Amino acid sequence: MSTFSERERAFENKYAHDQEMMFKAIARRNKKLGLWAAGLLGKTGQAAEDYAIEVIRADFEEAGHEDVVRKVSADLAGHADDATIRAKMADFLSEAKAELSEG
């Protein structure tokens, strides 16, 4: 096998790994966002976990994260605005990436 083919395969493997890690980080971010929002809504225990799963599922409606913002924003009407939700999403994504890189 040529060196070029080996390098190409290595880049493809790295790309696949990076995509998988980003998917996991976004799912983890969405769970954290769901738990945070559940707390604002007064949900605890299993109800909070169930709500977090709803937020994770909302991310599969369309590409990007606008579907998550829309869902959480509608649910948190009067509790938090879009800017706060987006800031929390950014914070939680940073946390999730750090947690995944730690192992």
Rank of each mutant, 00 (worst) to 15 (best):
102 E>F: 05
32 K>H: 04
13 N>A: 07
24 K>M: 00
70 R>Q: 06
94 S>M: 07
13 N>T: 04
42 G>A: 04
33 L>P: 08
30 N>V: 02
23 F>D: 06
19 Q>T: 01
81 D>M: 05
74 A>C: 04
86 R>Y: 14
36 W>Q: 06
23 F>S: 05
94 S>G: 09
33 L>I: 09
60 F>A: 01
55 V>M: 03
28 R>L: 00
30 N>G: 04
85 I>V: 07
28 R>G: 01
36 W>E: 05
103 G>L: 02
89 M>Y: 15
22 M>D: 10
99 E>P: 15
37 A>P: 09
95 E>S: 10
83 A>G: 14
67 D>I: 04
31 K>A: 00
13 N>W: 07
19 Q>H: 10
88 K>W: 15
12 E>D: 14
29 R>P: 08
13 N>K: 11
45 G>F: 14
75 D>H: 09
1 M>L: 05
85 I>G: 11
51 Y>W: 12
102 E>P: 12
77 A>I: 02
34 G>Y: 03
89 M>F: 15
32 K>Q: 05
31 K>D: 00
78 G>I: 00
4 F>R: 01
5 S>D: 10
23 F>V: 00
45 G>E: 03
94 S>R: 11
1 M>F: 05
71 K>F: 13
41 L>D: 01
5 S>K: 06
98 A>D: 06
52 A>N: 11
78 G>N: 01
37 A>T: 02
51 Y>L: 07
40 L>H: 13
87 A>T: 15
30 N>P: 07
83 A>I: 11
58 A>N: 03
2 S>K: 03
14 K>Q: 08
97 K>V: 02
102 E>S: 11
78 G>S: 00
3 T>K: 04
31 K>F: 06
90 A>Q: 07
35 L>S: 08
39 G>R: 08
11 F>E: 07
8 E>A: 15
41 L>N: 01
8 E>K: 13
46 Q>F: 15
18 D>N: 13
96 A>F: 09
21 M>R: 07
43 K>W: 11
28 R>Y: 02
39 G>E: 06
65 H>R: 05
76 L>Y: 05
61 E>Y: 13
24 K>N: 00
10 A>N: 06
103 G>V: 03
25 A>Q: 02
56 I>H: 02
17 H>I: 00
7 R>M: 08
87 A>D: 13
67 D>G: 14
45 G>R: 12
71 K>Y: 12
89 M>W: 12
23 F>P: 03
63 A>C: 03
17 H>Y: 07
50 D>Q: 14
34 G>S: 08
47 A>Q: 11
90 A>W: 10
20 E>I: 04
35 L>W: 11
26 I>C: 03
24 K>C: 01
14 K>G: 08
76 L>T: 02
19 Q>L: 02
14 K>I: 03
82 D>V: 13
80 A>G: 04
7 R>N: 14
19 Q>R: 05
65 H>W: 10
95 E>Q: 12
22 M>H: 13
85 I>R: 10
81 D>Y: 11
41 L>R: 04
54 E>G: 08
55 V>K: 05
50 D>F: 15
95 E>P: 12
5 S>P: 10
44 T>S: 14
95 E>H: 08
69 V>G: 09
78 G>T: 01
18 D>P: 13
12 E>C: 12
24 K>G: 00
85 I>C: 09
60 F>M: 01
15 Y>I: 04
66 E>N: 10
92 F>A: 09
99 E>A: 05
86 R>P: 13
69 V>Y: 09
91 D>Q: 07
3 T>L: 02
17 H>P: 12
87 A>S: 13
35 L>Y: 14
22 M>F: 13
86 R>I: 13
